[in-house]
Structure formats: C-alpha cells, structure tokens
Amino acid sequence: MDILSIIGVILAVVAIVGGNHLEGGHIQALMNGPAALIVIGGTLGAAFIQTPLPAFKRALGMFPWVFASPDVPLREGIGKVVNWSNTARKDGLLGLETIAEMETDLFARKGLQLLADGCEPDTLRSILEVELVSRENSDLRAARVYEAMGGYAPTIGIIGAVMGLIHVMGNLADPSMLGSGIAVAFVATIYGVALANLFLLPIANKLKAVVLEQSGYREMLLEGLLAIAEGENPRSIELKLEGFLD
C-alpha cells in the first residue's frame, strides 16, 4: 500500500474543503450536479473518442497501482539471476529448463527457456528487447489516458462555465434564476481544474513512474540473462547488476 498516495488524496480534499470553509464558504456551495455532469461526462467522452478500447481497459486495470503498485524486487531479482548463473555453470544451460518451468515471472521464464534452448546472446537480446519495449509502450499508452483526461478537464470546465453564463444571460429578467446559473459557471471551472491537477495528472505521472520502474527490473533481468549466455562469472554478474540498485 502506497501511503503517500493515500495521504495525497486526503490532503488535496482537505485543502480544498478546508480553504473554502476558512473563507466563509459552505460545502454545499461546492456540490453542484449539473457542473459535475458537464465536467466528468465531457472529460470521459473526450477520452473515449481519443482512446482505443484495449488501451482504456488497460488504463482501468492499472488504476489500483496508484495505491498499491506491483512489487519490483530488484535485490531479490539479482539474487535469482546469480542463482541461475550458478546452476548454468554447474549443470549447463539445460539445467535452467527446470527453473524456467517453476518461474512465475513470464518475462524471466521466456528468457530462461530461450537460454535452455541454446539461443545465441544476440538473438536472446533482440527477442527480449522487443517484448520489453512493447510492454513498456503499452503501459505508458494506458497511463497517458489519465494525462489526456487531465488536459481535457479544465477546458470542459470552461465550457461548463460558459454554459452557466449563457443561462444567466438568458434569465436576467428573472433574478430567481440567476443564482443557479452563476453557481454552475463557477463550480464547473473548479471541478475541471481540480479534477485535472489534483487527481488525473498526478495519477498519470504515478503510473508512468511505476511502469518505468518495472521496465528497469526487466532490463536488469535481460542483462543478467545475457551475461549467463555469455558465460560470465556469477560474482561478476552480481557486481554488474548491482548498478541497477538506487
């Protein structure tokens, strides 16, 4: 569980609501159904138009990473690679076949199977790099869905503000109708700006960081597998891979 993300959400909400209260405002003033419908519906609609369905599904699947990102055990991964290296030196590359069958990480399993099949280092690199880059691009594309929504939300908020002002101008002769129109105008702007800058853009950046962290782990595995294929000493492999640690 990412405690910083939880604190961030709470702090953002408390800052907005608390600041409004300190200025003498009421929470009811920030609650406006039409404004929320315009901003949230318009932002989602724009995102739907822009985003292919697989990327949007992936973006939804990655959302929990904001609060509970997948574990990236770099140090443990280095230990695994060193153990694979010791096995390869003792039993040959074929000895990695049994390890590959028990490996839960699909990227590592594929690399081990290629090693056990006698794949040349250059071929091994080209195959695994294609998968690494493809997966990274797919995940980054999904993270950019939130970034795109963060770009649309403030503009949709302005559209809501203009719609509210049009409503106000059309009811100048009826003062009882002015309040609701003005409320929609200002609250829609708040919703758009707050949704983008307090939630959508931070979510996008958080997911990008997690994706790059996962890619770094796979790069470490790739370098380790290549070192095993080239017959490097396990101790040398360990020292090399420790460069991936922060």
Results as ranks from 00 to 15, higher is better:
residue 8 G to E: 09
residue 56 F to W: 12
residue 144 R to V: 01
residue 149 M to I: 08
residue 144 R to K: 13
residue 197 N to P: 03
residue 12 A to C: 03
residue 82 V to T: 12
residue 97 E to I: 07
residue 168 V to K: 07
residue 122 D to A: 14
residue 238 E to R: 04
residue 134 S to G: 13
residue 150 G to W: 05
residue 126 S to Q: 12
residue 205 N to T: 10
residue 57 K to D: 05
residue 95 G to H: 09
residue 2 D to M: 01
residue 82 V to H: 06
residue 202 P to Y: 11
residue 123 T to N: 12
residue 221 L to Q: 14
residue 66 V to A: 09
residue 206 K to E: 06
residue 51 T to S: 13
residue 226 L to V: 15
residue 86 N to L: 13
residue 32 N to M: 01
residue 55 A to Q: 11
residue 223 E to F: 07
residue 63 F to H: 07
residue 174 D to R: 01
residue 70 P to K: 09
residue 52 P to R: 09
residue 137 N to H: 09
residue 188 A to S: 15
residue 112 L to E: 03
residue 233 N to S: 06
residue 120 E to L: 15
residue 100 A to P: 07
residue 213 E to R: 14
residue 179 G to C: 01
residue 18 G to N: 00
residue 48 F to T: 10
residue 136 E to I: 00
residue 214 Q to R: 11
residue 42 G to P: 07
residue 7 I to Q: 03
residue 90 K to A: 14
residue 98 T to L: 15
residue 41 G to E: 02
residue 174 D to L: 06
residue 212 L to A: 08
residue 111 G to E: 04
residue 215 S to K: 15
residue 107 F to I: 02
residue 149 M to P: 08
residue 57 K to E: 10
residue 114 L to A: 12
residue 185 A to G: 09
residue 201 L to C: 00
residue 174 D to Q: 10
residue 208 K to E: 13
residue 54 P to C: 06
residue 149 M to Y: 11
residue 64 P to E: 05
residue 181 G to P: 08
residue 87 T to M: 12
residue 188 A to H: 05
residue 177 M to T: 12
residue 45 G to D: 04
residue 4 L to R: 15
residue 222 L to Y: 08
residue 157 G to I: 05
residue 233 N to G: 00
residue 44 L to Y: 08
residue 208 K to G: 09
residue 139 D to S: 12
residue 108 A to D: 02
